[in-house]
């Protein structure tokens, strides 16, 4: 039984990365009806920026601000830089291509993804890098009999806090309602005085910002990072997005967590090697049987 809970905690940790990255896919898709293929690489960029901040300053950040202040500051810097990168991606790769149609957008998104991935390689090198050991002290303790590490608690704490904030913004604030309204019916949103450009700016900043923080935490958790890690995480997070219903924001969070847990349990009980295959089969099955995702609703098609 303890293996089960260990797998569960591990799954939730990984699932929270997926959830944070999935939020970015889902928000952008909701408003723009566009799969941001560069999003996974922005996640990788977050991991590398975090790596540089934590190693480059040879621990100065954590030394001068204390452990938690240092991690918080690093996370904030990473979030802001990756958010900026996200906004630039929209300006450079998407905005000029909108008039040329969806296929061209896929190619420019892929082009951007290749660019970011190889820019990371050019800057940080093609070999995997390792985060400094034990940035967060490797404490283990038992939580109602379930063994957890301090790192896991930290990651889950930050992730859930972020998700709560996003949920509050999107579901409870005026601006969040405006974002959802723009996703549903852009023309009517404009009629009500919603500046859709601001909404676009928001989703392209917030989504990658969250993805960047997820990248940083992923680095802290697994330590090893590589320049092409974005593809794989991007694909997984994207699966999570579909699982929750693309464009559905609470769905993306739920989808990420479910995916992480399912994956961990599959790895623990069925086969570690085949877990990803199961995940993609699950993805296809969802698209066949419930294309609007677990939380989605059926929509009628108009001719």
């Amino acid at each position: 039984m303890s293996t089960f809970f260990e797998q569960l905690v591990n799954g939730l940790t990984v699932g929270s990365f997926y959830a944070l990255v999935a939020l970015g896919y889902s928000m952008v898709y909701g408003v723009m009806k566009l799969i941001n293929f560069a999003h996974g690489d922005l996640f990788a960029l977050g991991a590398y920026l975090g790596y540089s901040l934590l190693t480059g300053a040879t621990g100065k950040i954590t030394a001068s601000m204390g452990l938690w202040g240092g991690i918080g500051f690093t996370a904030l810097l990473v979030a802001l830089s990756v958010a900026l990168a996200g906004v630039l991606v929209e300006r450079i790769a998407y905005r000029p291509v909108y008039p040329s149609g969806r296929l061209s957008l896929v190619v420019s998104a892929l082009g951007m993804a290749i660019f970011i991935q190889n820019a990371i390689m050019a800057i940080w090198g093609s070999r995997p890098q390792a985060f400094p050991a034990s940035v967060v002290p490797s404490l283990r303790f038992s939580f109602f009999g379930i063994p957890v590490t301090l790192l896991q608690v930290t990651i889950l704490g930050i992730s859930f806090a972020l998700m709560l904030i996003i949920w509050l913004i999107v579901e409870k604030s005026n601006f969040g309602a405006a974002v959802r309204a723009s996703a549903l019916d852009r023309e009517t949103a404009i009629l009500l005085g919603i500046d859709v450009r601001k909404v676009i700016f928001f989703v392209f900043a917030l989504g990658p910002g969250l993805g960047g923080v997820a990248g940083l935490m992923n680095g802290l958790y697994y330590r090893a990072i590589s320049f092409n890690m974005g593809w794989n995480y991007g694909l997984k997070a994207f699966t999570a997005t579909i699982l929750g219903g693309i464009g559905n924001i609470p769905g993306a969070m739920l989808g990420g967590l479910i995916l992480g847990v399912v994956e961990s349990l599959l790895a623990g009980y069925v086969s570690g090697a085949w877990k990803d295959v199961f995940v993609f089969i699950l993805l296809i099955a969802i698209l066949i049987f419930r294309p609007t995702g677990l939380l989605g609703e059926k929509t009628a098609e108009k001719v």
Binding site: S100, G111, I114, F115, Q117, N118, A119
Partner: peptide, 13 residues
């Protein structure tokens, strides 16, 4: 490959 990505993007623009 960085240039290549950029080239793809420019082509589409």
């Amino acid at each position: 490959l960085m240039f290549f990505g950029l080239a793809l993007l420019l082509m589409m623009i």
